[in-house]
Design a binder for these strands. Structure first.
Length: 885
DNA sequence: ATAGGGTTAG
């Protein structure tokens, strides 16, 4: 992060910590419908196994006999017999035969109970086609559908998954019973349309429909999903008033409602007051505590069940195992596994999947693979747990591979699978893989899912494609706080600070910024040096009680450091009770940027005294501090400590700091040898640090040697050419300057124009080099001309060299580059009261002439100037600068 | 005839 020589870096100023690693655990918003239970009483399988012989006998032997019989009866008798006949087949579960008979007697008015039996069977077999046939025959025969028959019709449609048609009949019906209300409410809840369930509940209240335990279970689930504690509590009151307070299913629903709303205390109280607890009550306690992050407490309930001899079932085992996963307790989960083998639950899918997830969450992917390969047929949950496990472990490639493999096996990834896979794509920054997942999402119409869209945006943002993220964001019909935070954080991380700020402003009318939002937006303020905006956000943090959060405080300190308000940063830093590695590192980097090397070293020492181990980032900070304060020996010491005591391999940024340190100390050939001896390939930044040193010490020969490397590695960067041209100019080698001018002209290099800005009363004024349209142009030009004249009069060596290279004809834009900071400073002098520090920020490094001019202004006009360039802060006061030249 | 607890995620 802390680079000294990047000529065009704004990335340096983006906070490296605060927002990046920010990942909040979030509550499960949606619940999925469980797959149909093949052992249920109404399932076709149980029927065939219960009556194997009679079913086959009837379907082969009876039909001809039945039709012969019916042909011989009189119409009246026949219709009675027809009813019994059809009902008989229905009871035997032979829908095909029953339907065949129905078609045969199509024109006859059969009994309502016959149609009921048929519809019941259609519902059980989920046979919508037959169900529709029955319905149309009923209508064609003009059968009265009031009462039970109407109810059955609704039941049939709903059971077959045709909720809308069921609802239509329900709405027309005049005899709605509580059963139908419950049925529909539940169905809406199952598909996640909790709002409609709630609407129906309120309608029931209005109409005075007598509610029962089913109603309450359902509505509590809905209010829990909608996180509406207030309404849920009203339901609780109603339950007590109507005397359902002793129904275990109802109380169990209340317990899980309170746990889902994060009110463990209320759940516990209900459990304590229960007279008759069943397995579900116990299981609700285990899962409730686990979901609220108190896994150990959940396990205690499981143990208590065993101690009291309560019958433990599959759900108890699964919850207990999930608790193990959340606290990564492999030992206990092995014990539970052994117990499950004895009890015979170990082969059940939910159990195996949870076991797999324990291994994956404990980081033991080999163990997870073992479970995965030994289970019969892994289902979608198994695959997803594997993918999520690989993604968590940083094995993105394996995760993405599995995604494609499961598709080949014919298993359709669902929303859980795609979000996990997207996470893997995001972590590895593989846009190409992410695009493939996106294509699949579009194909399956999953973009409507909020979580999926959020994961998509996160993936695009982390892969550096904010255009794609924006496209997803703009077409989302409903955005939650995560959506906004993902986009704002994405802009911040991708150095699009202005976009981050404007989206932050747009968000306000829709959603209240939370702790994550402010940690996402503060780095944007930091990178723009937008102190006023940062302070506003600080105010918001205080007003909303967000300052107890570690991430928030660290981001806040980082913002103050980078906006040049070191005093404020120190104040906040001192107030933190438990400073973590990030807080210390930010402060060390802060001292470094402001040129307080000794303070940085002292802070580093205090950090180690506090028992905090430095990592590679904190070593970058301290090395940067040493190089910028000329602490050569200390720098070497830290470099060696890092390698020998902490076994951290230096990376390019560490090497850059060291080269910078040597180069500034004038040890140019030592620096050259140092680079040559690096075990990793040096980049343009490393060589660039040496080139800067060559300029300070006017070493043209070395500069030429170094420049070759720099130009080769970054041929497009104008900054390097200008730097070498300046070195030539200062050595008065005009031939070479000219040669370089031609080179720059020929290459038609893309301009890297300098730009400076100053914030006055919350508004940023931007000055771009080469642009003559700026506010108060006349006064600024007059002031600068005046200052220049005085500088010359007072014999300030207004170096002709700078003037030559800057104002000559290299190229107009390049030549003017470096003057924007002068304009901004002059604007500050004109616009701010004398007591106020002039704070200017520049995207590139400050030019030498401007540096002289700033010193002069500080002395002549008695103004303090704080200028932040791409590398550090320059604090001008009484004619000198904190960077010591 | 409809429910309450149980596996995977941003």
């Amino acid at each position: 992060m802390l680079l000294t020589t990047k000529t065009s870096s704004t990335g340096f100023w983006v906070c490296p910590f605060a927002n990046n690693s920010r990942e909040k655990p979030l509550k499960n918003g949606t619940s999925q419908a469980l797959p149909g239970n093949p052992y249920s009483r109404t399932s076709p399988y149980s029927r065939t196994s219960l009556f194997p012989s009679s079913v086959s006998h009837i379907s082969i032997g009876l039909p001809p006999k039945a039709s012969v019989l019916s042909a011989n009866r009189t119409r009246n008798i026949r219709s009675i017999d027809n009813n019994t006949e059809i009902i008989k087949f229905c009871e035997l579960g032979n829908l095909d035969k029953a339907m065949e008979l129905l078609f045969e007697y199509e024109k006859l008015k059969l009994d309502a109970r016959t149609y009921c039996s048929l519809l019941q069977l259609c519902a059980e077999y989920k046979s919508i086609d037959n169900g529709r046939e029955v319905h149309s025959i009923i209508e064609r025969n003009g059968i009265e559908t009031g009462g039970v028959l109407e109810s059955k019709l609704v039941f049939m449609y709903v059971s077959c998954g045709h909720l809308i048609e069921g609802r239509r009949i329900f709405d027309r019906s005049e005899s709605k019973n509580v059963f139908l209300w419950n049925l529909l409410m539940n169905e809406y809840a199952k598909i996640g349309n909790f709002k409609e369930s709630v609407n129906m509940y309120y309608r029931m209240l209005e109409l005075g429909i007598e509610m029962n335990s089913y109603t309450f279970s359902c509505i509590l689930k809905c209010f829990a999903a909608l996180e509406n504690v207030v309404e849920g509590e009203k339901v609780h009151e109603k339950i007590l008033k109507l005397g359902f307070g002793s129904y275990s299913a109802v109380v169990n629903s209340l317990i899980s409602f309170y746990f889902k709303c994060g009110r463990s205390g209320s759940g516990q109280k209900l459990f304590d007051e229960m007279r008759e607890r069943d397995v579900v009550s116990w299981n609700s306690m285990i899962s409730g505590y686990v979901a609220n992050g108190l896994a150990v407490k959940g396990i205690k309930f499981f143990m208590e069940m065993l101690r009291l001899g309560v019958d433990v079932d599959l759900a108890s085992m699964v919850s207990a195992l999930a608790a193990c996963a959340s606290i990564k307790d492999m030992l206990l989960s092995r014990a539970i596994h052994a117990y499950a083998v004895k009890a015979g639950f170990d082969l059940k899918m939910p159990f195996t999947n949870t076991l797999l997830d324990v291994y994956a969450k404990c980081g033991d992917m080999d163990g997870a693979v073992c479970v995965f390969e030994n289970m019969g047929e892994p289902n979608i949950v198994s695959w997803t747990s594997m993918i999520a496990g690989y993604a968590r472990e940083g094995l993105s490639y394996e995760a993405i591979e599995l995604f494609h493999e499961m598709r080949k096996k014919g298993i359709d990834p669902d929303v859980f699978t795609v979000t996990s896979t997207l996470h893997a794509c995001a972590c590895s920054g593989s846009l190409e893989s992410g695009m493939k997942v996106h294509a699949y999402i579009k194909e399956k119409n999953m973009e409507t899912n909020l979580v999926v869209s959020n994961a998509l945006m996160d993936m695009f943002a982390k892969c550096g494609s904010m255009e794609n993220a924006e496209a997803v964001f703009s077409q989302m019909p409903a955005k939650d706080i995560v959506s906004w935070n993902t986009m704002i954080g994405g802009y911040s991380k991708n150095s699009l600070a202005n976009e981050a700020l404007s989206l932050f402003a747009k968000m306000q009318p829709h959603k209240r910024p939370d702790d994550v939002t402010v940690t996402c937006i503060l780095p944007a303020c930091a990178s723009l040096a937008a102190l006023d905006r940062g302070q506003e956000i600080h105010g918001y943090i205080l007003r909303n009680g967000l300052s107890s959060d570690h991430f928030v405080v660290n981001a806040l300190i980082d913002m103050y450091v980078k906006c040049g308000a070191l005093v404020m940063a120190k104040l906040l830093f001192r107030k933190i009770l438990s400073k973590d590695l990030v807080s210390w590192t930010i402060m060390i980097a802060g001292y470094a940027m402001h040129g307080f090397g000794t303070e940085a070293v002292a802070t580093f020492r205090k950090m180690r005294q506090a028992g905090i181990e430095p990592d590679e980032v904190s070593f970058i900070s301290i090395l940067y501090a040493c190089s910028h304060s000329g602490l050569l020996d200390a720098g070497w010491r830290f470099f060696n400590i890092m390698r020998n005591e902490f076994y951290i391999e230096p990376n390019l940024e560490h090497y850059t700091c060291m080269v910078d340190l040597l180069a500034r100390a004038g040890k140019l050939s030592k620096a050259y040898k140092f680079i040559k001896g690096m075990p990793i390939e040096p980049d343009a930044t490393v060589w660039g640090a040496l080139l800067c040193g060559c300029r300070i010490y006017h070493d043209v020969d070395m500069a030429e040697k170094v420049a070759e490397h720099v130009f080769e590695l970054e041929p497009e960067n104008t900054g390097h050419y200008v730097l070498l041209a300046n070195i030539y100019a200062e050595a008065e080698k005009w031939e070479e300057v000219k040669r370089l001018q031609e080179k720059i002209g020929k290459r038609a290099l893309k301009k890297n124009s300098g730009c400076s800005w100053i914030e006055i009363r919350g508004k940023a004024y931007i000055f771009v080099s080469g642009d003559s349209a700026f506010p108060q142009a006349k006064s600024i030009k007059f002031l600068l001309r005046d200052l220049r004249r005085k500088m010359n009069e007072l014999g300030h060596s207004s170096k002709q060299k700078y003037a030559l290279i800057n104002e000559d004809e290299i190229e107009k834009e390049v030549a003017l580059c470096g003057h924007s900071e002068k304009l901004a400073m002059a604007f500050g002098v004109l616009s701010l009261p004398p007591s106020k520090t002039i704070r200017v920020t520049k995207n590139l490094r400050i030019c030498g002439d401007c540096h002289e001019m700033a010193k002069f202004i500080s002395k002549m006009l008695g103004r303090e100037i704080l200028l932040r360039d791409s590398s550090r802060f320059h604090h001008f006061k009484d004619g000198s600068c904190s960077c010591r030249g």
